[in-house]
Computed example of a mutant assay.
Amino acid sequence: MRRPIKSSRRDFLSLGLAAAGMAGLPLMPVRRSFAAGAAEFTVLSDGHLMLPLGFSYPDVPQDELKAMLAAAGQPVDSLAPDCNVTMLRSGDRLILFDVGAGGNFMPTAGKLADSLAAAGVEPDEVTDVIFTHGHPDHLWGLIDDFDEPVFANAGFHMSAVEWQFWTDPETVNVMEEARKTFAVGAASRLALIADRINLFAPGDEVVAGVEAVDTAGHTPGHTSFMVHGGGDPVLVAGDAISHPLISFEHPEWPSGADQDTGMGIRTRMALLDRLAADKAAIIGYHLPMPGQGRVERTDSAYRFAPDA
């Protein structure tokens, strides 16, 4: 069931203004690296978002939500989730999972170029870009200020369902008003890589050692990726699990960011159950930098246990 978003373009304008108020603050490139067998993960910062709390979780018990955030020392009127782009060096491949927001979405995001430079990586070195989904903070960094693809030598990979959704000319007509720009921006960017895209299905090995895991709900073809071959598997989760408290303590709460809220809840609960049982590591795009940790069961739900 696609839930109408109770917001308007004014919500996004106010969101952008709140972010612009922080735009003057210096944002240093942040990265964290860790080995996984012969491969190496590096989590690169694309900055962070600024989201009104009511936009992110409009349909949950507000008093309970604010009490939970306050008890954890977090703001109770807005969220500022980190944006963590995962880079994987494996054999002769240098892989990016998502490409950040670029310069035209939100002033506090779009810092991937600085983080890559700080890590000593040139965009031309990237061999593969694997998309979890087509939202602006994951896709719009595909192009530079001249509307040219940033990663000139890369092959691109996206779920066939996700590609179909964002390239369908009718998508903009069925999107909520506040998100029509998402559809327009995705379509224009994906058109630039149409001759370089590899479309995959859940369960496929996208590149060697990288398995596509169906985590639809946030978007119709949202995909997470289980990386094998380095001891414990590592799940690059994208936005299937997005908040270090709410997603774990109340996975049954609907998220305002999910295209299909019911499917998003089912996906989140099944994924948490699998990760807790398998003790697999996770890297979450919007979990606190570097987003790396594990899922543990509690008496009532789950908790996120960040790795040291």
Results as ranks from 00 to 15, higher is better:
F55K: 14
F55I: 13
P58N: 11
D59V: 09
D59P: 01
V60F: 06
P61R: 02
P61Y: 04
P61H: 03
E64I: 09
K66Y: 02
K66P: 02
A67R: 15
M68D: 13
L69C: 04
A70Q: 13
A71K: 06
A71R: 14
A72H: 05
Q74K: 14
Q74V: 14
V76K: 06
V76W: 09
D77A: 13
S78P: 12
S78N: 12
S78K: 15
S78W: 15
P81D: 08
P81G: 09
P81V: 08
D82T: 04
C83R: 10
N84K: 06
N84L: 03
N84M: 06
T86V: 09
T86N: 03
M87C: 15
M87R: 09
L88F: 08
R89Y: 15
G91F: 08
D92Y: 14
R93K: 14
I95S: 08
L96W: 05
F97V: 02
D98A: 12
D98N: 10
A101E: 02
A101D: 09
A101K: 00
G102S: 09
G103E: 07
N104P: 10
F105V: 07
M106L: 11
P107F: 11
T108E: 05
T108M: 09
G110C: 12
K111Y: 12
A113R: 15
S115G: 11
S115T: 10
L116Q: 08
A117H: 12
V121R: 02
E122W: 13
D124Y: 13
E125G: 05
V126N: 02
V126K: 06
V126Q: 07
T127K: 10
V129P: 05
V129R: 02
F131R: 02
H133K: 06
H133D: 14
G134T: 00
D137P: 05
W140I: 05
W140A: 05
L142Y: 06
L142S: 07
D145G: 07
D147M: 10
E148Q: 14
V150H: 03
F151A: 02
F151T: 00
N153K: 05
N153V: 04
A154G: 03
H157A: 07
S159G: 07
E162F: 04
W163D: 03
Q164P: 13
F165M: 04
W166K: 10
D168A: 07
D168M: 10
D168Q: 05
D168P: 05
P169I: 01
P169N: 09
E170P: 08
T171K: 05
M175Q: 14
E176G: 08
E176N: 10
A178G: 11
A178W: 01
A178Q: 09
R179D: 13
K180M: 14
A183V: 03
A183D: 07
V184E: 14
G185R: 02
A186I: 01
A187G: 06
R189W: 00
I193G: 01
I193L: 09
D195T: 11
R196C: 00
R196M: 01
R196I: 03
I197P: 08
N198Y: 08
N198M: 08
